[in-house]
Amino acid sequence: MEFGILGPVEAWAGGGNVVALGSAKVRCVLAVLLRVPGTPVSREALVDRVWGDRVPGTSVRYKYVGRLRAALEPHGVGLVSRDGGYLLAARAEQVDMHRFRNAVAQGRAALADGSLGAACRFIVDGLAQWRGPAVAGLTGPWAELFRDQLERERRDARVLLARCLLDLDRVEEALDLLAEWLVDYPVDEDVIGLHVLALHRCGRRADALSSYQHAVDRLGRSLGIGPDDRLVQLGRRIRAHDRDHAAAEARLPRSVARLPH
């Protein structure tokens, strides 16, 4: 059996059949337990994360836990009471979140060893675990904080992958991904900078400068701030490169200056 947190909270039995879990509250109980599969979660922590300040009666908690147990146990996954809490008898590798985290950790280790190609493969495998916004459809303070945490991890993995691809000179591949991710992170200066750099390395210098200027405008409108020093320096380097390139062409004989480059 497999479980999904990186998207709608779901469970799949053998053959990929979707298991009917029921309401959002049942799915939230499952998400809380999947965060630490095989480890007891106290009753107090479960209630706080699923219901927040609206503490339910004991019978309500039993009802939702019972519904989840009834959905999972026919597929060989137990939900047991232990140490004053509840334990989901599943392994980390059955959960997409833990597979994602493990793959990214392997990618970082490969990068530390200088294996850029392996690092890319691990991170791509990790990002492939995502099906949409984390714990989609769940509400409440805990779910929102958990979603934000996981989305930050996905963002960091994406940035790391883009940097690895650029270091491997797989510029077109990096550019395609960054153009897509810029929609998700329109004011993220790391993503902006990598997108501008990828355009520049593809020889699209005018597009790089246009992307840079649009980003500066978005930062001003959305956040009321200017670009950070790294982004400013990148813009200056691209402009300086253009000036140097134009000056070099001006010094060439006219017939040479018109050759494609």
Rank of each mutant, 00 (worst) to 15 (best):
residue 203 G to W: 15
residue 171 V to D: 12
residue 174 A to P: 15
residue 203 G to F: 14
residue 122 F to P: 03
residue 91 R to F: 04
residue 155 R to N: 06
residue 202 C to G: 07
residue 98 H to E: 12
residue 89 A to D: 15
residue 170 R to H: 10
residue 190 D to G: 12
residue 210 S to D: 05
residue 212 Y to V: 04
residue 215 A to S: 11
residue 16 G to I: 11
residue 243 R to W: 00
residue 170 R to D: 05
residue 92 A to D: 14
residue 116 L to M: 07
residue 188 D to G: 01
residue 139 T to G: 12
residue 49 R to P: 04
residue 186 P to W: 11
residue 30 L to T: 11
residue 204 R to I: 04
residue 14 G to A: 09
residue 92 A to H: 02
residue 1 M to L: 02
residue 200 H to S: 13
residue 139 T to M: 13
residue 133 P to Q: 03
residue 223 L to P: 05
residue 224 G to Q: 11
residue 253 P to Y: 15
residue 250 A to P: 03
residue 208 A to Y: 05
residue 81 S to R: 07
residue 158 R to C: 15
residue 8 P to E: 14
residue 130 W to M: 08
residue 118 A to C: 01
residue 112 A to N: 06
residue 154 R to H: 09
residue 62 Y to W: 09
residue 181 W to F: 08
residue 188 D to H: 04
residue 56 P to M: 01
residue 101 R to M: 14
residue 1 M to Q: 02
residue 238 I to C: 10
residue 137 G to D: 15
residue 260 P to H: 01
residue 251 R to N: 02
residue 71 A to D: 01
residue 130 W to E: 01
residue 144 E to A: 11
residue 48 D to H: 05
residue 235 G to A: 01
residue 72 L to A: 00
residue 212 Y to A: 04
residue 209 L to V: 08
residue 127 L to D: 06
residue 36 V to F: 07
residue 116 L to Y: 04
residue 169 D to N: 07
residue 202 C to D: 07
residue 107 G to Q: 10
residue 108 R to A: 10
residue 170 R to E: 15
residue 203 G to L: 14
residue 41 V to R: 11
residue 204 R to C: 02
residue 4 G to E: 10
residue 88 L to W: 03
residue 129 Q to W: 10
residue 189 E to Q: 08
residue 138 L to H: 08
residue 253 P to R: 11
residue 19 V to A: 15
residue 136 A to K: 09
residue 226 G to M: 11
residue 68 L to A: 06
residue 45 A to F: 06
residue 34 L to Q: 09
residue 25 K to M: 02
residue 20 A to E: 09
residue 35 R to D: 10
residue 154 R to Q: 14
residue 135 V to N: 02
residue 119 A to G: 13
residue 235 G to S: 04
residue 34 L to D: 03
residue 101 R to I: 12
residue 226 G to A: 14
residue 203 G to E: 10
residue 168 L to M: 08
residue 93 E to K: 01
residue 30 L to Q: 07
residue 87 L to Q: 09
residue 133 P to K: 11
residue 154 R to P: 15
residue 84 G to Y: 00
residue 184 D to G: 04
residue 227 P to N: 09
residue 74 P to H: 13
residue 171 V to I: 05
residue 230 R to K: 07
residue 160 L to V: 13
residue 169 D to V: 01
residue 93 E to V: 13
residue 109 A to R: 07
residue 56 P to I: 02
residue 74 P to S: 14
residue 31 A to K: 10
residue 58 T to Y: 05
residue 129 Q to L: 10
residue 174 A to V: 09
residue 213 Q to Y: 03
residue 192 I to Q: 05
residue 96 D to K: 10
residue 233 Q to N: 07
residue 16 G to V: 12
residue 57 G to E: 05
residue 40 P to S: 01
residue 210 S to A: 13
residue 188 D to E: 03
residue 132 G to K: 08
residue 176 D to N: 09
